[in-house]
Amino acid sequence: MRRFGWFNATSLTLGLAFLYLPMVILIVYSFNESKLVTVWAGFSTKWYGELFRNEAFLDAAWVTLKVAVVSSTIATVLGTMAAQVLVRAGRFPGRTLFSGMIYAPLVMPEVITGLSLLLLFIAIGLDRGVFTIILAHTTFSMCYVSVVVSARLATFDRSLEEAALDLGCTPFDAFRSVTLPVIAPAVIAGWLLAFTLSLDDLVIASFAAGPASTTLPIKIWSSIRLGVSPEINALSTILIGVVSAGVISASLISKRAMVLRAREERQAEQG
């Protein structure tokens, strides 16, 4: 039986090519010997070497990493707290508004988010730099964290928390010693998601960044205007690697947790 008709095969090939051909070309040419991006002159890793001697790129990479680690950590704390309120607090006046406000940044145009943050920073006289990029990234990535964590909390057995209270925990202690360890995979997945979002953000960062603080995406974008160099190909290849590693591990962690949970539930049913 032919399960894979010619039509399906063609659709799949075209679709994948459309999505990934540009990236494949970028990666392939990052190993090009020639300085010309469009002419293949043999395999080489010399552009990676060049890259690690380029101070400007290394500075930008360091800023990006700092921003990503700090903003995703703050976003994880705030996003988890917001998720806890959304799922646990039950009905309170303005709940719908609150949840709407948490999820709104998911669909808000980045330009608007970036612009409004810029106006805010100017209004309160905050000098733009690493700190403002961290603030900006925290605001938009915390809603992603809260989506991931609230999905997990919704299926969390409430009686576990009650049992902890019953056995002498304060509400905070119950959250720390029971809820958090159980939902940890979702929290870690949320952190990784926030981390990768921060890593490759260009639009919001360019509004929030100051002259002395350039993130990698901004640096790449501005170098392109002076012409594409194989160095940028190499840098982008590394970025693709880091981002895919983050996204893949985030999904693997939540999937593994799901499989484990399903197995435990199955065993519980069988007794």
């Binding site: 009686s159 576990l160 009650e162 049992a163 902890a164 360890p181 159980v182 435990e264």
Partner: peptide
Amino acid sequence: FQSYALFP
């Protein structure tokens, strides 16, 4: 608890 609520 009815579900036992054991900490997994």
